[in-house]
Design a protein around this nucleic acid. Sequence first.
DNA 1: AAACTTTCCAACCGCCTCAAA
DNA 2: TTTTGAGGCGGTTGGAAAGTT
Length: 336
Amino acid sequence: MGRAPCCDKANVKKGPWSPEEDSKLKEYIEKYGTGGNWIALPQKAGLKRCGKSCRLRWLNYLRPNIKHGEFTDEEDRLICSLFASIGSRWSIIAAQLPGRTDNDIKNYWNTKLKKKLMAMAPPLSSQKKSTAPPLIPSSHHHHQALVSLLPSQPYYTPSNKSLISNSFDSFEPISSNTPLHLFDNNNLIQIQENQLFSNNNSMQGYYPMKDNFLTFGSEQSCSSSDGSCSQIKQEDIGFHQGFNYSNGFEENNQKFMLNYGSSDRGGHESLNQWSEKPNGYFGEIASDYSLEDVKQLISCSNINGCNNENNINFFSSTDQETKLQDSKVMYHYFNY
DNA sequence: AAACTTTCCAACCGCCTCAAA
DNA sequence: TTTTGAGGCGGTTGGAAAGTT
């Protein structure tokens, strides 16, 4: 019953790889490949290592075309937007960055990029509080999010006014008078664009903002069964450089943030440039994940899966390929 | 220069899914 | 149908390197 035993764990070497081990592994794989069997590989290659260790060493360090060293601004942006979309699914993120490994990206995020973004964000306590009523009933105990990918310019909104969709419904450019429809499953919120961007907006509780930014969320942080909720954590939030305002409020222990991407990049060479690159963030690189896969992952990247009614809603334009390529991620977090 | 602290990252650990037996 | 291992993944850690006092 079951498969053959794994490697003799009591008799395998651990710790850093020596140059000799590296060359043995590299030479063997270059000559014979992995054979689809990492467990058997170390013995064949003359290594006293666990197959898992060999796999990791090969994938993260020895395989060809591994890119080490500084991450570019473009890579920063891509990591940020994908992290905002799908969370810490490093292998998927890595698939969109040629030459980068999931481990590299994970380390980079944990040690540098997260701090970099945090340094740009104002402390939550400094943000204005609102008197606006909660938009989400207090019975909602899940961390919820509404995600949309909006083309950089112009802004789009679904023509059928329904954002409850995981598909890419038809979109039309919004005029300055067209309300944005922000939706969670119980609340449809209409917001005029000028209410988002005007400093003298009349919408109580919504603070004006100018420039793009991004918020990040962790996985579910509270329970729907017992109603307990942890407060939003500072490290769960990141902002893109270049924002001037964020709008958010706190009410009845709920945090609400409303974020919006701007198309005005102004040519600044910084993180606030989202999509100057003609080929965009997706689609130009060979990876195991196609654009459709990424869309699907984004559309399913919630707590409970694609079919849950509290789903993250994801939409884009009919011209999916091109529009998605220069899209930005807009996150709305409700109720932590 | 030494002691201490912080940062960085390679590698390990443990969990999950899938499939072989 | 059940058990078990392989492969894959994300979280965590230990120690080296870099920075600070």
